[in-house]
Amino acid sequence: MECQIDNPFSTKQFTMKQLIALLAGLFLAHAGFAQDVFMCRNTGLSFFSATPVEDIDATTDKGTSAMNVKTGELYFKVAVNTFKFKKQLMEEHFNENYLESDKYPYAIFKGKLVSPPDLHKDGTYEVAVDGILSLHGVDKPYKEKATIIVKDGKPSANAKFNVKLADHKIKIPTLVIKNIAEVVEVTVKAAYNAAS
């Protein structure tokens, strides 16, 4: 079917078919873009430190994370007061004395994959992540290794890295210094879904 459209600015005439193809193409581009961004609303974070006196172990599954597989951008955000400890008193001290979650409610990591692989393809990728961790009001650059597994087009990420408390001005009083390690190991687990 031919469709004539008056156009004072152009002599070129589109067929309806061409128009539909063009629009469809644009919509696909949209859809394609949306698939580049993935979200994880229950990102698991935990940290662990062993000291001569006791092990400190806390977890949360209330982190939120987003990843753009095309650009390799990554973003993590977690409310500090959602970390749960086995010992309640430790949790209180963690929030009150060390992380000061009243003043600094969130821990945020903003980073980028270094030379991101094609994460549209299923597979296991060892990647390097470069970014800034904002914790206890102090921003510090980190360069860490992570594993990204893509299955059925959905990525999931795992990473383990060390945070030195002094780097983020988290002060441990000398009285309890043997109870608290100066470096804690942080584990991150995120299973992403396409952002809607």
């Binding site: 873009f33 939120t64 987003a66 753009n68 973003y75």
Partner: peptide, 22 residues
Amino acid sequence: FAQESLEALVDKEEVKTHEPVI
């Protein structure tokens, strides 16, 4: 859409939980 940062996306999605006052 391209301008919307991951940060804004996360902030929008963040579920407010009723955390106890310590």
